[in-house]
Amino acid sequence: MLQIDLNQLPSTDELPCSDDTPVDNEDQNLLPNLLLFLLCSIWSERMDWYFGVDMAIYHTTGINPRVPVVPDAFLSLGVERKKGGKSRKSYAVWEEEGTVPILALEMVSHQPGGEYEAKQSLYANLGVLYYIIYNPEFWQRDRHQPFEVYKLVNGSYKLQIGEPYWMPEVGLGIGRSEQVMGGIKQELLAWYDSQGDRYLSDDERAEAERQRADDAQQHVEKLLARLRSEGISEEDLS
Rank of each mutant, 00 (worst) to 15 (best):
G114Y: 09
S194L: 06
G162F: 11
I184G: 03
K151H: 07
E235M: 08
A213I: 08
K158Q: 11
D24H: 15
N33Y: 10
H59F: 07
H144L: 09
A118K: 14
D215H: 12
N33P: 04
P136V: 08
W139A: 12
R141V: 06
T99S: 15
L75G: 02
S41E: 11
L103H: 00
L159R: 15
Y192F: 15
F74Y: 07
I184L: 10
L200F: 14
L188H: 11
G84E: 09
L9R: 05
F51A: 03
S109R: 08
I133T: 02
K83C: 06
G155F: 02
S121L: 07
D27T: 03
M1W: 01
G183P: 11
S156N: 04
Q211T: 07
Y150R: 05
N125V: 02
M55V: 05
L77F: 13
S109C: 15
R228H: 11
E187A: 08
V149K: 01
A118P: 01
I63R: 14
S76P: 04
W43M: 08
E106P: 01
E187Q: 15
E221T: 12
V53N: 07
R46F: 00
N154M: 08
G162V: 06
D19T: 15
L15R: 13
S121P: 00
K82R: 13
L122T: 10
Q195V: 02
Q145W: 02
A92Q: 05
Y192E: 01
G62F: 03
D215T: 10
P168L: 12
L223H: 09
